[in-house]
Write a protein that binds this DNA or RNA. Structure first.
Lengths: 236, 236
DNA sequence: TATCGCTTTATTGTATCCGATTATGAGGTT
DNA sequence: AACCTCATAATCGGATACAATAAAGCGATA
């Protein structure tokens, strides 16, 4: 059992000495957004956030502008900050980007991962197939994929991929809840095929399967634009 | 003649009402880095920058942390900020990422660009072939490629691509100077082939040519690790 | 009654100040 | 002579306070 923290805000970058409150605030807000506690479209009030984390507004402002670069927050100058909201087109765009990036990472991972890594991948996939609730599903899905990219040795690429997983997390949750569990067998089958290709050290095979995994999800997503209608009113 | 500003810090995002000094400082520092005035590894002193732009240290701090997310600046907590430096491996990694992203953008652009756009692409390529000095070469190269992605209708992808052009700009300059002009005919040939494919509305062809364009550059870059040895001392 | 304009209020952006951490240099010791 | 230690100085991170901007609510007028 690997001990990646909750949703793994900083999986690729070592947690580092996050002594400075700015970093703590960044991670905390990111966590609130990824966990779904702050829904897309929610207003982010600097003073409220400052009070919540017992700091002044300054680290909060810093955090917000960093999270904007991460694509999780939208800043309107002199006006305020909101949790970033994606429409269907943007989400499809991000999936198309992921289709290009993640197979690249996986192919390099396959060339470098240890046998122990592969055991971990298999364990995560099977734990996912055995899981029941949505949050477990999402957490293990994320853990499996991000873990499968970790040996790739491309730090920039990993950061980038993690960013896109973060900014689409909310919509993956909504989509998972929407579909229910009856079509999950497809995902598990795809995951098992990917792990099998990794076991055979077939990097290209794994990459192609992963490409199709993401592409199929994108196509299914495109069939359900209603996911993006919900103008969820956020609460801080 | 298009009026893209100097190096085009904000080509994709509209310049917007950048009334706030933070944004101005971000753009200004980015410009200093991209233009080469601040070399990778240079120390960025908050007070000096504040004095240079006639603002307090606060907008500068804000700018630095944003530029860190852009990959242009490295922040060491409680220690300072430096212009990000790439080693050969990182640069090759970014080129591999670009190989995946830019063909995607181009393929979508080909489906959406106007005849007028295509004329612009051709003009830029020919202006580049007629150019003499390094800075013109770099500017037109950048303008051509970024312009060719602009009609793609994928804002996130464009921002991303522009980021990577920014963070590798210094090394493209060094590489261009290193190679001299005798091998530029390859680049012009590739560019003309790409424009021709666009004219024929052959999106896949253009994408493949672009992929090879970037890949060949990456392979050549890998042959010249000395580019990354120069520990340029920066001045503010 | 609806719309336009103004005033008020809340929230953001900026400057100055203070504490904390790190880098630097001198001095002593092995 | 090289290395380690301690003190000093420079610089960064954060808090408080103030100014500027935008949103909202109220009132007046067509």
């Amino acid at each position: 059992m690997n001990r990646t923290p909750t949703t793994g805000a900083s999986v690729v970058l070592m947690p580092s000495a996050t002594a400075h409150s700015s970093n703590r605030v960044v991670d905390a807000i990111r966590e609130l957004i990824i966990s779904g506690e702050l829904a897309p479209g929610s207003r982010l009030n600097q003073e409220d956030l400052a009070a919540r984390f017992s700091v002044s507004r300054l680290p909060v402002r810093d955090a917000l502008s960093r999270l904007e670069s991460d694509g999780l927050v939208i800043l309107k100058p002199s006006s305020g900050a909101w949790v970033a909201k994606l429409d269907l087109a943007e989400c499809l765009e991000i999936y198309m980007i992921r289709e290009r990036l993640e197979p690249l990472a996986l192919r390099h991972s396959v060339e470098r991962c240890t046998e122990g890594d592969i055991v971990l991948f298999g364990d995560l996939v099977e734990a996912m197939a055995a899981g029941t609730d949505t949050e477990t599903f999402l957490r293990l899905d994320r853990q499996f994929h991000l873990a499968s990219y970790r040996p790739c040795g491309m730090a920039h690429l990993q950061t980038l991929i993690e960013r896109y997983w973060n900014s689409t997390q909310h919509y993956r949750r909504a989509f998972t809840n929407f579909l229910g569990r009856e079509r999950n067998w497809i995902i598990h089958a795809e995951h098992r095929l990917i792990v099998d290709a990794i076991r055979r050290r077939d990097g290209d095979g794994a990459a192609h399967l992963l490409f199709e995994h993401i592409r199929r999800t994108r196509c299914e997503l495109a069939e359900h634009p209603s996911i993006f209608d919900a103008t969820a009113k956020g609460k801080i």
